[in-house]
Amino acid sequence: MATFFGEVLSVSSRAVDEDEEDENDEDEEILKELDETREVHLEWYQSNSNLMTDTNLIIAVGRNAASFLSVYVLTSASWEAVGHASLSNAGSQTICGQTSTEPACVFYRKKDNRAVILCQISGYIEEDLQFQWTEKVLGCFKQKGLSVTVLSDSPVAEYKNMDHASSSSSPFLLCLQTKSSTTNPQCPLLEQPNIFTGIQAAVLSYCQVNQIPAVAYQCYSDAISPDSITMDTYKLAFTSVGDIKVGPLPSADIINKFIKTNHIQSNLYI
């Protein structure tokens, strides 16, 4: 869908080009080599970062969710950075006021409760790396007692519904959880024919097949850049996470820091 008038979009077809099926061995080798360069690297700053049992892992992906962590959580409690993940496509589309040299995915741990780990993904992880990212990151934690919460966002235009009243009341939160999750979600469940894609889908799939309790909360919003009203909706999700205090609405200075840097230059009204 075009985001502004006159935008030219390349339309993806569901059909697959026959020619690509006729690869010879040389092409196959090149593709394989290219595929091997597509790597996710994890780096933990302390060797025992991930050896805890009963880990409570919270992953925030997307502009609003990552900014929510920056504004409400990382400022309100004492957290330390314990590691980061770098991708072969790192540097593209960073948000949250980071420069492109900063890693797109950072892990933080609560100083007074070492079992709580936050993962803030401020870059975009491409489709072919999402599965690998999930296997590597979740594979680092002991499965015993592990529980996962994902916060993500999506444009409200992606939400399919017969009833227009509900989609106009954006931002709103919907969730999906794995079979082994016993938490009572604080918001309605996602209904057919809507789906989740991206990291949130990769994480839920991993947790479903490995029987790890996981809940993903997705915020549907019509705002292009992070705003305080959209970020506010994630507070609802945090009431069930436990042991994390979400601070009160921080000062305008802090919010400005994250919103100003995301100001989108529009050329429509020069």
């Binding site: 599965f131 079979k179 479903q208």
Partner: peptide, 30 residues
């Protein structure tokens, strides 16, 4: 069972074949 592989783009959704409110929230994968 599930076919869990990195060859497919990840996606999840609620039960596509739901017949009642109870099974509608079940998670289904790629």
């Amino acid at each position: 069972g599930y076919m869990h592989t990195d060859c497919l783009v990840p996606m999840v959704g609620p039960n596509p074949y739901a017949t009642s409110a109870e099974d509608a929230g079940e998670l289904h994968t790629t």
